[in-house]
Design a protein around this nucleic acid. Sequence first.
DNA 1: GCGAATTCCGAAAAGGTTTTCCTCAAAGTA
DNA 2: TACTTTGAGGAAAACCTTTTCGGAATTCGC
Lengths: 343, 343
Amino acid sequence: MARRAAQRSNSRAATLEDVARLAGVSIATASKALNGRTHVSATTRTTVLEAAARLSYSPNALAQGLRAVRTGIVGLLTSDLEGRLSIPILMGAEDAFGVGRTSVLLCDARGDAIREARHLETLLSRRVDGLIVVGARPDPRPSVGRDLPVPVVYAYAPSEDPDDLSLVSDNVSGGRMAVRHLIDVGRRSMAHITGDPSYGAAQDRAKGALAELAEQGLELAGGRVYFGSWSEAWGRSATRMLLSQTRGVDAVFAGSDQIARGVIDTLHGAGLDVPGDVAVIGFDNWEIFTTSSPPPLSSIDMNLETLGRVAAQRLSAALGGDLRTGVESLPCRLVPRESTTSG
Amino acid sequence: MARRAAQRSNSRAATLEDVARLAGVSIATASKALNGRTHVSATTRTTVLEAAARLSYSPNALAQGLRAVRTGIVGLLTSDLEGRLSIPILMGAEDAFGVGRTSVLLCDARGDAIREARHLETLLSRRVDGLIVVGARPDPRPSVGRDLPVPVVYAYAPSEDPDDLSLVSDNVSGGRMAVRHLIDVGRRSMAHITGDPSYGAAQDRAKGALAELAEQGLELAGGRVYFGSWSEAWGRSATRMLLSQTRGVDAVFAGSDQIARGVIDTLHGAGLDVPGDVAVIGFDNWEIFTTSSPPPLSSIDMNLETLGRVAAQRLSAALGGDLRTGVESLPCRLVPRESTTSG
DNA sequence: GCGAATTCCGAAAAGGTTTTCCTCAAAGTA
DNA sequence: TACTTTGAGGAAAACCTTTTCGGAATTCGC
């Protein structure tokens, strides 16, 4: 059912001039009254506020942004198809800026450099106050450019250019944390099954895990890190391999929650209890996997909201003149659940 | 490492005036040259274009939006924490508008009405051209308001107000489609295990499934629809129930991919082969579940990208004066994989 | 060589807001 | 009463772009 456009109730949004006229004052006074500036008497102020309310006046942010130094818009440039990363980061940034103070313009480049350049151009022409760039995988990515007119923060995936500012999760300490937790719950013989070795994150997590083991005087079960792919299927086949090669394994540190899922499945299939016989901990703390798995999966959370929040803070600081460069690592967080804590 | 703000290379972005001055023409001429308007000689045009390139001039979209009728920004107001819905819809909308022609301002209300109102206000003050509202669950939700100055399209979750325009997935035909497919692959005795019965979508999918079964003269295995919750755990327990109550089931239509996951797990646990003994089809086509499951899971896709694309089209049409109202159902799509087609 | 037609270009307004500076009136002081 | 101080309110500029309309310069036809 289609109908011709009815005359919209307010064919034109009310402007400050309309408010001023209704209140019987000048535009300047109306502006001052609405913005809580001085040099306006109390009675005049209420008159103006009433007029504004009556017209349901809403200031034109475009005009404000045109005049002001800040527009109150930040761009979020992502290549993360699923939104798995961008959304938490977005929410953290929103929190840090404060609701209503800043809006986020979200662009997905879909891994395409051309599209990214286009989006970048659009964002700059919209005069965003700053830019957060979120990569799809946690490895260094090309810089979007050195001499942009606005500050840029790279989140999750660092920039290849050391003169940019990047925020990443500290995967080394995350790996440490996982092993430390397994030790704390009394495990001694643990394997590490993880994803694609070409990912820096996989290497870092393994490095942290090995370092912690070494410090505790323990050896890695199976004698090596099982690198493979970030899939449940790999979790399954690696676990089969592990079980056939080694005995007495009492814990597995999986490089992702998906892998952990495959690990648990296979352990169950072999008649082993989790965590009774083997404790399992994942990485990412992806709710959808950690809570639906039987038993609920312990995991390491990368604190993506915090990443977003800090990104927002760094952006604000940069606008205030405090520029930083280099890669900043933010700590992960342990989320223990029943797959490691039997009780 | 922090350093004082270096003098930014271009402390102020180049304006049209700068371009005009460098090209030795007036602002008006520069504008016409850049926008491909007439009344500019070819030589002047190239001069201006060169000047613009040299200054890396980028028009101020704020100023453009201030003067033009359209700003080229649409707001996406969501309550979908995970981004599971918003992102595909966003991508579809982006596709329909064309990259670079329209930007999307994304706001997450997190299910909070106050926050939603705040975001709405912000979006309106930024003079968005239109609004797409995405609900968290596919049931009617309160309208954001009747007399907004911009067109609004509700996607996924329809508005309670029939005078709004809503786009939803056709869950009834989706349910039909699933059953139809199971019949096509030779199944005769199928059960339906689905989620929370308070969800309209659960009811609709069941309705479609039952209608198709009736038309084919078949009965539902187990004698009833297994309503429960949208969890893997429910998929497991419902399947145990089903297996203990009925024999000869050769197919299960699960109301979501997560439920399907639990169903398959339990079938495997009972020594049954999928799809050899029992074929399983899910709903949502959530990649992360459908491809990691062994075997890969057939599913019904709600075509969220299409939803976003159509939303964008309806918004454009509304801006052109062609307003519509009511609820528009968009078809789902079958994605067969190995859990139903033994290959 | 002169009026008319044709191009090309520029001045100026509009779009909505904020801020600076100025004026004017009222209140206070000598 | 005359002068200063204080405080309220307004005019106008600035932010940057697009578009309209009029003016100027060139070309063309005769």
